Amino acid sequence: MARISVKITPFHPDGTECTHAIRPSGKPRDPDSGCTGRRDYAVVCSACGPIGEPHGLRVLAEPAQIAHRDSHKVTPVSVTR
């Protein structure tokens, strides 16, 4: 079975993914990077793609991340002899 990852991905206000280093305030560490700051956080599954709507704060996206990851867990199959 392939390994599935469920990550929280930050996005710029224009909808592009943000890969810049960010200060705790949400502003870019390097002012010359062209980064406009982070606005939304989306849960993205490697098997299913984007999950639900983006969240304004990372902490608000974590429950959706956990719930979706749990939905991929395989239930153990009992073996009878």
Rank of each mutant, 00 (worst) to 15 (best):
residue 20 H to W: 11
residue 50 P to R: 11
residue 31 P to W: 00
residue 69 R to Q: 12
residue 28 P to F: 03
residue 33 S to I: 04
residue 38 R to M: 07
residue 4 I to K: 08
residue 65 Q to A: 09
residue 23 R to S: 09
residue 57 L to W: 08
residue 73 K to G: 08
residue 53 E to C: 04
residue 58 R to D: 06
residue 66 I to H: 10
residue 47 A to W: 07
residue 73 K to P: 01
residue 72 H to V: 06
residue 42 A to R: 06
residue 10 P to Q: 06
residue 44 V to K: 02
residue 41 Y to C: 02
residue 67 A to F: 01
residue 44 V to R: 04
residue 49 G to C: 05
residue 34 G to I: 01
residue 41 Y to R: 01
residue 19 T to F: 01
residue 74 V to W: 04
residue 74 V to N: 10
residue 10 P to N: 07
residue 58 R to Q: 13
residue 78 S to C: 05
residue 43 V to C: 06
residue 27 K to S: 11
residue 54 P to K: 09
residue 58 R to P: 01
residue 17 E to L: 04
residue 51 I to H: 12
residue 18 C to G: 09
residue 36 T to P: 01
residue 46 S to N: 07
residue 63 P to M: 02
residue 8 I to C: 03
residue 44 V to I: 14
residue 71 S to F: 05
residue 54 P to F: 07
residue 49 G to T: 07
residue 4 I to G: 09
residue 37 G to V: 00
residue 2 A to R: 13
residue 14 D to L: 00
residue 76 P to D: 15
residue 27 K to G: 05
residue 73 K to I: 05
residue 11 F to C: 10
residue 81 R to W: 11
residue 30 D to L: 01
residue 29 R to H: 10
residue 34 G to H: 04
residue 22 I to Y: 00
residue 78 S to Q: 14
residue 77 V to Y: 06
residue 52 G to N: 13
residue 12 H to D: 07
residue 3 R to P: 06
residue 53 E to H: 13
residue 73 K to N: 11
residue 38 R to G: 00
residue 40 D to M: 10
residue 63 P to V: 02
residue 70 D to R: 08
residue 61 A to V: 02
residue 24 P to L: 02
residue 78 S to T: 14
residue 79 V to E: 13
residue 43 V to L: 04
residue 12 H to A: 06
residue 35 C to R: 02
residue 38 R to L: 01
residue 76 P to E: 15
residue 27 K to H: 09
residue 29 R to K: 15
residue 71 S to M: 08
residue 20 H to Q: 15
residue 77 V to E: 15
residue 22 I to Q: 05
residue 45 C to D: 15
residue 60 L to A: 13
residue 77 V to S: 12
residue 5 S to N: 10
residue 77 V to W: 05
residue 29 R to C: 12
residue 15 G to M: 09
residue 12 H to T: 05
residue 18 C to L: 04
residue 50 P to L: 03
residue 31 P to H: 03
residue 6 V to H: 02
residue 39 R to K: 15
residue 72 H to S: 10
residue 18 C to Y: 01
residue 79 V to L: 11
residue 6 V to P: 01
residue 30 D to S: 10
residue 40 D to C: 04
residue 48 C to M: 09
residue 40 D to F: 11
residue 56 G to H: 05
residue 30 D to Y: 05
residue 23 R to L: 14
residue 46 S to P: 09
residue 4 I to Q: 12
residue 57 L to H: 13
residue 62 E to I: 08
residue 67 A to M: 04
residue 53 E to T: 13
residue 16 T to E: 15
residue 24 P to H: 04
residue 13 P to L: 01
